[in-house]
Design a protein around this nucleic acid. Structure first.
Lengths: 215, 215
DNA sequence: CATTAAGGGTACCGTACGGTACGGTACAGG
DNA sequence: CCTGTACCGTACCGTACGGTACCCTTAATG
């Protein structure tokens, strides 16, 4: 099994010192607070009591710093969704509802929204690495996990489908709908998430209508 | 019935002269080409052979110009989705498939992506009007239309559901899934839209599984 | 022809930001 | 004690951009 350090080396991400992690943390806070326009090198330096020269020494340039922020945040995502429970058909269905709740919560989180907005704002620049980075670190991780438990559920005959990845995309659509984009556009969370709990349950119920195995 | 001019007046949008529309058109082209960073007042002026002074006279400031771009583009959306056909159950289902295709095509269009990226990039600024503007002019128009034909279909007993708006959100989720966000993040269109036709048909088939009336 | 309004071209200003340079400080190792 | 290293704080530079002012051409009107 790979240690975190080994993974970082494999991705060519230099290991971060404690100090550097602190800086990234306060940079994220700054981004959440005021969006990209607030994310100037001077403000990052002053907010984290560090010199601009150190920023440039550690991260190369502003883009490097932002990339580091993404990777740093991504490294914290993995554990977000709890352990699945395939003990029984009922237990698995409950787990799916928890998964739906968790997915919506993550997507609606301040940091997630801020980073997605940042990456999307730069995505018109073909050379920007932020979009792919976010897809890999965020969506990719969750999708891989989901494909895993979907396949397990199929083996146990809780669900029936052809392709786990496609099926996950349907599940995603039923859960998220247009909520993510509306949040990204600035619609108020209370409004978009008004029926949070009911929506999560409805999504899973409909997912079972499409892919569940009748008993 | 309201004339277009009356609508514009009601929204406090000044009518646009031919010249001003040309300027907005070339500004949109500029935005599609190079993203927000390419959208400077100097470039807009030079690209449309007009003086900066005229820009400021017509649109107030840069934000006003961008808002005008959104409204201008929005005013062209209405006719995008063709006329519905509720002549028979089969005809309506075919229409839904066309609707799915059309929705995906619109969302994946260059101008739509560029404007959404622009609005999302500014959405962290609480005071930015771009997000609401885009929601109203883009999503709102399509949603209103969809709610209309869903209700008609329910009356004709092609579909069965409680709330048309909620049902439309499900339909949206089944059709779009995470395609929109992935496109916004810069993932290549060929990749996201690989199974465009099949996905549209699958979405409608599943929608009927959830809301169709059995015969 | 004279007058006037609209608008194009351009020079200019203030400012904000990315990036660099430099002096000063704390500390570790010999 | 000396030296090197890491880093903070700050001043500084070049540039790009939003916004303004001014001059010129064009064309319509009397």
């Amino acid at each position: 099994m790979l240690t975190p350090n080994a993974i970082e080396k494999a991705k060519n991400i230099p290991e971060l010192t404690e100090r550097q992690s602190e800086v990234l943390e306060s940079a994220l806070a700054l981004l959440v607070e005021g969006g990209e326009k607030a994310l100037t090198t001077a403000k990052i330096a002053s907010a984290s009591n560090c010199s601009k020269e150190s920023l440039y020494k550690w991260f190369g340039d502003r883009d490097g710093l932002i990339s580091a922020m993404m990777a740093f945040q991504g490294s914290k995502v993995g554990a977000a969704v709890g352990q699945e429970d395939l003990g029984s058909a009922k237990a698995f269905k409950d787990y799916l509802i928890r998964f739906a709740r968790e997915l919506l919560s993550v997507l609606a989180g301040d940091t997630s929204l801020a980073l997605n907005r940042l990456a999307i704002g730069q995505a018109s620049n073909e050379a920007s690495p932020l979009g792919p980075l976010l897809i890999e670190n965020g969506r990719g991780v969750i999708e891989a996990k989901a494909v895993g438990f979907l396949n397990s559920a199929a083996e146990k005959n809780y669900l029936r489908f052809d392709d786990a990845r496609q099926t996950y995309h349907i599940l995603y659509g039923l859960i998220v709908r247009d909520a993510h984009v509306r949040l990204l556009l600035g619609e108020r969370r209370e409004l978009v998430m008004k029926n949070f709990e009911r929506d999560a349950q409805t999504a899973i119920a409909q997912f079972y209508q499409l892919y569940g195995v009748e008993e």
